[in-house]
């Protein structure tokens, strides 16, 4: 791993099978964990925990299966900018819907 990350940005990096097996196991553990958590009575924490685990799984997929950890700065910036824009759009839309009927519930 440490040797791999030293490669220059423009050299095409190959992620090996051991990394993929480790991520596969982590994703399966995450799936088991989120299903187990859904059986617990946690009130408002149920959706928060489910979405947190989903985000952790998605991050592993993006970084390793999709090679973003080993990609060029341009690709990293593109991914982060896209997620950032997406979150702005969602939060502004939700803010509008939540505040529009303010006080009438």
């Amino acid at each position: 791993m440490s040797e791999q990350t030293k490669h220059a940005e423009h050299e095409h990096h190959i992620v090996g099978p051991m990394v993929y097996v480790a991520i596969l196991l982590a994703l399966l553990v995450g799936t088991a964990l989120t299903v187990w958590a859904s059986f617990l009575e946690l009130g408002p924490w149920n959706p928060i925990i489910a979405l947190a685990i989903a985000t952790a799984k998605a991050t592993l997929v993006v970084l390793f299966f999709m090679h973003v950890k080993y990609s060029t700065k341009l690709t990293k910036l593109t991914v982060v900018a896209g997620i950032f824009t997406f979150l702005i759009l969602v939060s502004m839309t939700l803010a509008d819907y939540i505040s529009r009927a303010w006080g009438s519930w």
Binding site: T34, V35, A37, S38, F39, E41, L42, G43, N46, P47, A50, L51, I53, A54, K57, A58, V61, V62, F65, M66
Partner: peptide, 24 residues
């Protein structure tokens, strides 16, 4: 591969939102 993994990520969120968060 990028496309296929993206479709996987969409399902990870669909599974949480549709199946898991309203069980109680």
């Amino acid at each position: 591969g990028l496309y296929w993994h993206f479709v996987d990520i969409v399902w990870i969120y669909l599974f949480a939102l549709l199946y898991l968060i309203s069980r109680h």
